[in-house]
Design a protein around this nucleic acid. Structure first.
Length: 221
DNA sequence: TTCCCCTTGATG
DNA sequence: CATCAAGGGGAA
């Protein structure tokens, strides 16, 4: 009933597609192709999730990845697939560890859209599934947009809608020219300032650390 | 296929 | 209660 669509007013998103002129769908960039088959074997979400015994946010950091072992075992629940197929309910909200979020956030600040390859790279580094990374970016984009227009509401004069819409999208999108150089793009620092996420760490550095360390999650305590 | 968008469902 | 990661639908 008139509750309203509850929709946060359609964002002025002209879509990055039009910006570029012809950002073809997806393009599938490389050999990677789509991965709807779930790379996760069966454990879909290997970590977290069931950590509700801790009183405070101790952050156990379960970033470890047992998936490498190819599904060693499924903890409790004797049923895993069946449950999904039949019940299909039980949505599990994966709780990303601090490290994972850190890297994701760092990357997001530089790039709002990732290509498939980049997505896979990130997922590999963080030990997450491609789908998870994709979903995370999707949700982040929503938040970011809401935040952006919200900010504009306060400073209606500060920003020119045209300014950001043009620059931002033009800079880069999922359609990036450089696959080899995932990081580094144009100077979007301006956006950063406005956004003021709480973290201002060197994205490339962070990722580099993770990459080098393989799975050093304790790097940043 | 991807995207956005809203809602669901779990976690804090 | 809010937040967050997903599920699902509709649209290029």
């Amino acid at each position: 009933m008139s509750v309203g669509p509850a929709c946060p007013q359609r964002l002025p998103c002209s879509e990055p597609l039009d910006s570029m002129g012809s950002p073809p769908p997806p393009v599938s960039c490389g050999p990677e192709e789509q991965d709807p088959a779930l790379p996760m074997s069966s454990t879909e979400v290997p970590h977290a999730e069931t950590v509700s015994s801790l009183p405070s946010s101790v952050d156990p950091l379960i970033l470890e990845s047992p998936d490498s072992s190819t599904n060693p075992r499924v903890d409790k629940s004797s049923v895993k697939k069946e449950e999904k197929v039949q019940v299909k309910k039980q949505k599990s909200r994966t709780v990303f560890s601090a490290t994972q979020l850190c890297v994701l956030n760092a990357r997001f600040q530089r790039q709002k859209y990732l290509s498939l390859q980049q997505m896979q790279e990130l997922s590999d580094i963080l030990n997450l599934s491609c789908k998870q990374v994709k979903t995370w970016f999707q949700n982040q984009r929503m938040k970011w947009w809401n935040l952006t227009w919200n900010t504009q509401s306060w400073n209606t004069q500060a920003w020119s809608t045209q300014s950001w819409s043009t620059q931002s999208w033009n800079s880069q999108t999922w359609y990036s020219p450089d696959w080899d150089t995932p990081f580094y793009n144009c100077g979007e620092e301006s956006l950063q300032s406005s956004m003021q996420f709480q973290q201002v760490l060197p994205a490339s550095d962070l990722e580099a650390i993770l990459e080098t360390s393989g799975e050093g999650q304790n790097v940043l305590q």
